[in-house]
Amino acid sequence: MSQGNFAQFKLVLLGESAVGKSSIVHRFVKNTFDDMRESTIGAAFLTQSITLPESKTTIKFEIWDTAGQERYKSLAPMYYRNANAALCVYDITSKASLIKAQDWIKELKKQAPEGIVISLVGNKSDLTENREVEEGEVDEYIRQMTEDGSVIITSECSAKTGDGVLDIFNKIGRALPVEEAVGGNRSRQAGRRPGGVDLGRTNRQQTQSSSCC
């Protein structure tokens, strides 16, 4: 591992309340599922690393898990600012939550940093009997988006059983411009590229933050 590359990326989770954003994160970070999870307020922060064998790269995700209530929407830019990836989560048993997730994608396209890797994730895939969102429906949406030139990673998972969770993060990891981030700068820090996490840019980020809202 010490021979491999290291890159750090900021990832944000967005989506309607109670679709299971925090559960996905905890499955990914701690490999646990807790049905006594408290609702997230504001946002929570966690980190986890994965290693991509093909490029021998370790990717550390800085994860911002945001609160789902609609009223927190105005705070979202605070968390997706400088994000390299976004997980827009819906609940396969709720059609309304898919629409919310698509709204988030729309907003990210407009507001988020260019080149952000977006994924549309359907959680609770274990609850097949209550399914409201068919996979074909999502595929159709993705096809449209692709025609418009937007690449969106799509996947279903179950934070409860763990099915497909790691897969999502691996897919995102592969889609991230790892080479670019590592290239030319093999230190522990990520490289200097737009959207990449660069400690040297902190000051500018701060001034941005004070004027942005």
Partner: peptide, 13 residues
């Protein structure tokens, strides 16, 4: 400032 930590991201909660 030196480690790039933004306190307002946590104090909101």
């Amino acid at each position: 400032r030196s480690i790039g930590f933004e306190i307002e991201l946590v104090t909101m909660n």
